[in-house]
Simulated assay, not measured.
Amino acid sequence: MLDAALIKECADPSLKPAIVEQFVRAVGSEDPLAITVKSGGRLILVPKPKKPEEAIEIVRENIGGSIVRVGLTQIPAGIGLKDASELKADLVDPCANLRMGTTMFAKILRIVAKWYGNPTSEEVFLQLFDDAVHAWQTGKFEGESVFQAEDAGGAVVQKSEDGDDAEEAPEADATPQVKEEPSKPDDAGIRIDLTRIGGQK
Rank of each mutant, 00 (worst) to 15 (best):
P170E: 08
Q137Y: 00
G163C: 03
V178T: 15
E123S: 12
A169M: 09
E150D: 10
A155V: 07
G139S: 05
A166I: 05
G163A: 01
Q177V: 12
S160E: 08
G139E: 03
V124I: 13
A169P: 11
A152C: 05
S145E: 14
F125E: 06
Q137N: 13
E142V: 08
D131W: 06
A188H: 09
D164H: 01
K179E: 15
S121C: 13
E180G: 08
D162S: 10
D164K: 07
A132S: 10
A155L: 07
E144T: 06
F141V: 00
G153M: 09
F125G: 01
K140D: 07
D130G: 09
A135G: 02
G154Y: 04
H134P: 00
D186N: 14
Q137T: 03
E168A: 14
G143N: 09
D164N: 08
D186P: 05
S160T: 12
P182E: 14
G143E: 10
Q158T: 02
K159P: 05
V133I: 14
T138G: 05
E167I: 14
G163Q: 04
D165F: 08
D186F: 04
A155Q: 13
D165P: 03
L128W: 07
E150C: 08
V157D: 04
A188D: 11
H134I: 04
H134A: 15
A174K: 03
E181C: 13
F129W: 06
Q137A: 06
K179G: 07
K159N: 15
E181G: 14
E122Q: 11
P170T: 00
K179Q: 15
A149W: 01
D164A: 08
D165V: 03
A132E: 00
S183C: 11
P170N: 03
D131Y: 05
T175K: 12
D187V: 13
S121L: 14
H134Q: 09
T120Y: 00
W136K: 02
G139P: 00
L126G: 15
A188I: 10
V124R: 13
Q148H: 15
A188W: 14
L126M: 10
S121Y: 11
A172R: 11
V178M: 15
P176I: 07
D162E: 07
K179A: 14
A188P: 02
P182V: 06
D131M: 09
S160C: 12
F125A: 01
D187C: 09
E150F: 10
A166H: 13
D165M: 01
E180F: 11
F125R: 04
S183M: 11
D130V: 05
A132M: 03
Q127K: 15
G163E: 02
E168R: 13
E122N: 12
F141T: 03
E122C: 07
A174R: 06
G143R: 04
D151H: 09
P182A: 11
E122G: 08
S121R: 13
V156K: 06
F141H: 07
K179S: 13
P176R: 12
K179F: 14
S160W: 08
A169C: 07
V133T: 04
P119F: 07
A152K: 07
E168Y: 15
Q127H: 11
P185M: 06
Q127F: 04
